[in-house]
Nucleic acid binder design. Structure first.
Length: 511
RNA sequence: GGCCCAUUCGUCUAUCGGUUAGGACGCAAGAUUUUCAUUCUUGAAAGAGCAGUUCGAUUCUGCUAUGGGCUACCA
């Protein structure tokens, strides 16, 4: 029988979620939805040192913005609550001790200083220190010390950790849904810490396996940086006797810096001029801020579409995917194996595509926000229409002000280059004439105005470009913009004449 | 250093032994246009190297090179 699909996204609240994390969450979500499964959000806050306040809220807000829905989590609740590991503290010690009793783990009493000294010694001799079978019985561990001494140390409050006792020489055969079969010999691995008495908290490895088991997680979809610890995780399932319900694993390729040379990190954003975070972030510790896709004007759909295709492809030439289409088409077998460089340019392109496909109503709502910021009152119809006329030229919704403000405000400055080209004595004469032609038009609709004005231009034998660009200078103030009749019909006769008059009275034509 | 993963145009990628190696971003040229854009057309642009398996390798295997990850009482 096919197991019920349950996946989890398990971030650590050590800062804002970056786009690599968002993609991991997305793939988990797509996989869950496609299989009618459950998406869990588990907060892995077992590192009390690196905890950052606000990070947890940020993560949830970011996922929500992206449209990644959580079925079970710290705010949603669920049958396996709590979903925050710090609140599950009481659970883990029992499991760590179970491993000690079974001989799969042992107590170690080394202090951080002792370990550092040991590492330094090894390094001085040109060797690499590894806490493993060659050394564990020579150190202060429950493997070398008499049981009574171990108990005495624990009782008198000495700090200890529980380490996994890595088998000396055993081949671990693993399977990854993306990479296929992987084999590692345990001789190359070391005895990882599973639990520390200092803060009574497990490390990632223990907490992760215990929680995935208890929460009945069926598939672990995570970043490639976890591949090296997969043998440990296999062994932990085995040690607990949970191998038969062990989840399947899929290790995702990493997101790399646009320039190559390493995985995308939180610092790259401002350095290279693109956001690495979904949302704007202010560090509560340093006060540093970082750009976010949301605040930079990206649509969540575009952001998700772009992210989905970084490391996965449908095998067809389709590029535009809604979330529903992604859910339908996603498959782990089509996730690529090698790291993908992040492409800021492609992200922009995706956003522009979504911009071009927005309906007037959607644009109206978005554009109104910007208009209000500039103290402009406009109807939704006006806002939508102006945005719709200019959207082809925009990449971000925030571009719209520069692009379309002339629909609402008369130009206060005139672009120098256009003035030079189109504001000579003859242009002024033509514009005066055009003004009177316009003032005689009753039906100021786009079609009618065009019909009449073009008739007049033909009759007079003027150059179309000269007339229209002179008018453009008066109405827009610049050498860009939509067809002039879009503008005339939008702003209306009265405003047209006013702007023409403005130009005539305020600016002397050049010779 | 050790272990693991990867390697097709500049970038993201298609190809599941036989293709003129396809698409997209970006770039260039042309067309369209009353301006700026958009749009359309076209173009330049790739199998890391060396062996092997095979009638035939981008595709399978090995080696080398390169890139990346991990190597914490961090996740």
């Amino acid at each position: 029988m096919e197991r019920k699909v349950r996946v989890r996204f398990a971030p650590s609240p050590t800062g804002p979620l970056h786009i690599g994390g968002v993609r991991t969450a997305l793939y988990n979500y797509l996989f869950a939805r496609q299989h009618g499964g459950t998406m869990i959000l588990r907060i892995e806050d077992t590192d009390s040192q690196r905890f950052v306040p606000g990070a947890e809220t940020y993560i949830m807000e970011a996922l929500q913005w992206c449209g990644i829905e959580i079925d079970e989590g710290i705010t949603e609740g669920g049958p396996y609550a709590p979903y925050r590991q710090s609140e599950r503290k009481a659970i883990y010690l029992k499991y760590a001790l179970q491993l000690v009793e079974a001989g799969w783990a042992y107590y170690a009493f080394d202090t951080a200083e002792e370990l550092n000294a040991l590492r330094a010694d090894f390094e001085a001799r040109g060797e690499t220190f590894a806490y493993n079978a060659t050394i564990r019985e020579k150190l202060a561990t429950s493997l070398s010390l008499p049981a009574t001494e171990v108990q005495r140390r624990i009782d008198c409050g000495d700090q200890w950790v529980i380490r996994f006792r890595m088998p000396e020489n055993e081949e671990i055969h693993m399977h990854d849904l993306i990479r296929g079969d992987v084999v590692v010999n345990t001789a190359t691995l070391d005895d990882k810490v599973l639990y520390k008495s200092a803060d009574a908290l497990p490390t990632y490895h223990l907490a992760n396996i215990v929680d995935d088991h208890l929460m009945e997680v069926s598939h672990v979809i995570r970043g490639e940086e976890w591949l090296p610890s997969l043998p440990l995780h296999y062994l932990l399932y085995k040690a607990f006797g949970w191998s038969d319900t062990q989840p399947e694993f899929a290790h995702l390729p990493l997101l790399l810096k646009p320039t190559g040379g390493g995985k995308l990190s939180k610092r790259d954003g401002d350095k290279m001029g693109f956001p690495v975070f979904p949302l704007f972030w202010t560090s509560p510790v340093t006060g540093e801020t970082a750009h976010g896709y949301r605040e930079d004007g990206y649509f969540p759909e575009a952001f998700i579409n772009m992210l989905a295709l970084l490391g996965w492809n449908p095998g067809t030439e389709q590029e535009m995917f809604s979330m529903d289409e992604l859910i339908q088409n996603f498959s782990l077998s089509r996730v690529s194996k090698s790291g993908a460089r992040f492409q800021p340019e492609k992200a922009k392109w995706f956003n522009a595509q979504y911009m071009h496909h927005k309906s007037d109503a959607e644009l109206a709502e978005l554009f109104q926000v910007i208009l209000r910021e500039h103290n402009i009152t406009a109807s939704n119809e006006q806002a939508g229409k102006a945005a719709s006329i200019m959207k082809e030229r925009a990449t971000f919704i925030t571009d719209l002000w520069d692009l379309a403000s002339f629909f609402f405000v008369a130009p206060s400055v005139y672009e120098e280059k256009q003035v030079k080209k189109y504001w000579k004595a003859e242009n002024a004469a033509i514009l005066r004439e055009l003004g009177s032609v316009l003032s005689d038009i009753d039906d100021f609709s786009l079609e009618n105005t065009e019909h009449i004005v073009h008739g007049w231009i033909e009759e007079k034998g003027y150059s179309l470009g000269q007339v229209m660009n002179t008018l453009r200078l008066a109405l827009v103030g610049a050498g860009k913009g939509p067809g002039m009749y879009e503008v005339t019909s939008f702003i209306g006769k009265e405003e047209c004449l006013k702007r023409i008059d403005n130009l005539m009275t305020n600016l002397q034509p050049t010779a």
